[in-house]
Amino acid sequence: MHPDLVTRVKKHPTFVDLVQKRNRLSWQIAILMCVIYFAFVFLVAFDRQILAIKLGATLTLAFPLGLGVILSAIVLTGFYVARANRVYDQMTREIVEDAR
């Protein structure tokens, strides 16, 4: 890539905006996933009393929590993809158009 083009794109206001927004969301989601997962792992490793809390006659709290981690992985992925498809792709197109 030509150095001039690099400088030009980097100064493009939409590029600055895109990078800032996308980075923030990306790291928020990645960190949130880590927090959810490792909170679960730490419960398994250190405090099973909480997981053993009964919900009704058979179910334990471990079930909704475990299922919740699985669903949160899908939902977080879906949220990012929907957002990126709707917002970031449009911004990227704009930058690419102007870079020509």
Partner: peptide, 24 residues
């Protein structure tokens, strides 16, 4: 019983990281 789910979860939680930080 429940132990099986712990491993399933481990195999799944890498994917949000892949999509947000790596795939694109």
């Amino acid at each position: 019983g429940y132990d099986g789910l712990i491993y399933s979860i481990g195999f799944l939680v890498g994917w949000p990281i892949i999509v947000t930080l790596m795939a694109e």
